[in-house]
Nucleic acid binder design. Structure first.
Lengths: 165, 165
DNA sequence: GGCAAGTTGAAAATGACTTTCATTTTCAAA
DNA sequence: TTTGAAAATGAAAGTCATTTTCAACTTGCC
């Protein structure tokens, strides 16, 4: 019997999908914006992924469902999702903005391979505590922080130590 | 008698300047590049600051010493300085790359005000330890990390709580 | 000095967003 | 339903911080 990979978590449940749509719809109503099929398609496509997507990557996925949806709409919808807390931007320091699910998501950080760009998430409550502590010390009202570690993943390290033989 | 501000550290000493120049010159020789007056001027100008400079800001300062030095040369020299460990890039997440001294500098991080852009440096050995620890755990060969805290500084917080009266 | 290799800087190119605008949709009131 | 004001869409144009190109200089080893 095949063993499931340890991170082989189920895709988002129908219930969570519905809940996220509600959050978006409420946000739209609150700020006087309108409900459109494009926005729903984009939200659904976004929620079905578990990666850190760039706008371009999300646009590519969205086009599979509806080829007429343009990049601009994906761009604007992603901003909307960030506004209502469903998405958040992560900067991997390669000049491309990436977005990940934020709703119902445990606080986490990323370690990024500078060779192949792959990343692993890790959890470190200490970092959250540090934000509070240092903010207090310097009289800042902190709102967020970024913490990323860069290096070579195991795979790329092996490749590097074995040059073009 | 005037009291010195607590962070009123002396400008870089002549000796450190010389040492930094040596590092650059050795690096140039090592990779087969040439020694030019422009590169020296840019290094000196950079070392005389204590701020986090964008390329544009450094170019402005450099032009005061030699108006004929172009932006492109500043850009390329900053990359060189980063290569040999004299400078390092800090990303404050506002779309502009900034550089700061790296040589002989204690490991530190930044807390940035999202309103006025000012920043304070803080020291947190715990973060350096975390880099090691998490890298080991996931079999990464870590090279560096970024840790920034964002929020409102005391000044901007006061302004914010007192709207256009 | 002579010249191969490297440097310079003005200008053009790049590329990831952002904005514009003419056209199409949405939705609440009639 | 119909209507029309407000909003959304998406193709194309604009921004802006880099990054590259290239023809005219410098450097530094002989």
């Amino acid at each position: 019997m095949l063993q499931k990979r340890i991170d082989d978590q189920p895709l988002i449940s129908r219930e969570m999908m519905r809940e996220a749509e509600l959050i978006l719809h409420n946000h739209l109503k609150r700020v006087g914006l309108k409900h459109t099929a494009q926005r729903d398609t984009i939200l659904r496509t976004f929620l079905e992924t578990r990666e850190h997507l760039s706008m371009d990557e999300l646009h590519r996925l969205v086009k599979r469902k509806d080829p007429r949806i343009g990049f601009t709409t994906v761009y604007r919808t992603l901003k909307l999702l960030a506004e209502c807390g469903l998405a958040s931007e992560v900067a991997f320091h390669d000049g491309i903005a990436r977005f990940e699910h934020q709703y119902n998501r445990r606080s986490h950080h990323h370690m990024v391979c500078t060779e192949c760009g792959s990343s692993v998430e890790f959890f470190s409550p200490e970092v959250d505590r540090l934000e509070q502590e240092i903010g207090r010390k310097h009289h800042y009202l902190t709102t967020r922080h970024t913490f990323q570690i860069y290096g070579l993943c195991e795979n790329c390290r092996k490749k590097a130590s074995r040059p073009t033989a």
